[in-house]
């Protein structure tokens, strides 16, 4: 029993040691799982090529990351938050309430969201309107969208005879995912507002408009396949009839097995996403807490590494990882703003 008592004392003592606050010499980054592959690539290079420690990058999701980021100033709180969407007004307010007045926004590039299927199937194009009709919970019963009905479409060809005669079967991310948010906002809403009556609803009844445009069907045609895009790709290869929704970088890395579907006649390719021609693409950001710059060593240098041409330029290593870069002019503007620590204003 004596031994046990010694163990217990040692354990309690170790808690005591930890309680002593310690200074931090390592950057802490939290946030989006979409930005995670890019942020980690920069962090690794930064750690190898400078005297600073390699930053710790956590994959918490955009919302979770910004919540941590805005929880306060001090070594216990992260320095940088990655986000696959822009920071919201409510989040900026939360930050301000917790004493974080100066945030610098850095837009890093674009991510296309693709609808893809196995290469064993014939390629098909689709319009946003058709995509909306295929996946929405309730669809317009008439051409203008005055009245709504439950989604009756079982086959793609039920929507438009030009589409393949195959069962609608789409694997996509669950509602907790940023990819799902972006898909719903860009693709579903994009198709939804083509109906004049629904477009009119946007001004009259915003809540209802959102419910109509953002509601995804729950009758089995849309399958929530989890956050893991690699898993969705494996399922697509096994089932040539199914389509999947995921980020462009996964299409890029698996181009021998799966093909992207052209949306509104534009195929998801590097050039079309970066020019903005491809309609379903979103911007990615990271946010820097200015109060930590100069306190936690290396933050400025990390931002410098991220926004260097060898990283995010058209020939940079982030492009090899699937990032779609900003235009030359936008990059120049962003670097200046980022390096001078420009304050975000909403």
């Amino acid at each position: 029993m004596n031994k046990h008592i010694v163990f217990a004392v040692a354990a309690v003592a170790s808690i005591g040691v930890a309680t002593a606050a310690q200074a931090r010499d390592q950057i802490r980054i939290v946030g989006s799982s979409t930005v995670f592959p890019f942020s980690t690539a920069v962090a690794e290079r930064f750690g190898k090529s400078t005297e600073f420690k390699t930053p710790v990058v956590e994959s918490t999701g955009s919302g979770g990351g910004l919540k941590l980021f805005c929880s306060g100033v001090g070594v216990r709180h992260p320095d940088i938050a990655n986000a696959s969407r822009r920071i919201k007004k409510s989040e900026v307010d939360r930050c301000a309430r917790n004493g974080i007045k100066a945030i610098t926004e850095v837009k890093i590039g674009y991510d296309g969201i693709v609808l893809a299927n196995s290469r064993k199937a014939k390629p098909a194009g689709i319009t946003l309107k058709q995509l909306y009709l295929a996946l929405a919970k309730s669809v317009p019963a008439d051409a203008r969208g005055e009245t709504l009905k439950d989604n009756p479409y079982r086959m793609w060809s039920d929507i438009d005879p030009s589409l393949p005669r195959r069962k609608i079967e789409v694997l996509g991310p669950p509602p907790t995912s940023g990819t799902r948010d972006a898909f719903v906002e860009l693709a579903m809403e994009g198709g939804c507002k083509r109906f004049p009556a629904i477009e009119a609803m946007r001004k009259a009844d915003k809540k209802r408009y959102k419910a109509v445009c953002h509601g995804i069907r729950e009758d089995g045609a849309f399958i929530e396949a989890g956050e893991n895009d690699v898993l969705i790709i494996q399922k697509l290869v096994a089932n040539p009839n199914a389509y999947g929704i995921f980020g462009f970088s996964f299409l890029d890395a698996n181009a021998d097995r799966i093909q992207g579907t052209a949306v509104n006649g534009v195929a998801p390719e590097f050039e079309t996403v970066s020019s903005g021609e491809y309609p379903v693409s979103r911007s990615m950001y990271f946010y820097v807490k200015q109060a930590h710059v100069g306190v936690i060593p290396g933050i400025e240098e990390y931002v410098g590494e991220f926004t260097a041409e060898r990283a995010w330029g058209p020939d940079g290593y982030l492009v090899d990882k699937g990032l779609i870069p900003l235009s030359d002019a936008d990059r120049k503007k962003t670097v200046q703003a980022a390096m001078s620590g420009a304050k975000l204003s909403m």
Binding site: V30, F36, T40, E44, G47, T54, V56, V57, E58, S59
Partner: peptide, 9 residues
């Protein structure tokens, strides 16, 4: 508690 993270060191 932040252990789902990319840590090189």
């Amino acid at each position: 508690i932040g252990m789902v993270a990319f840590i090189v060191d």
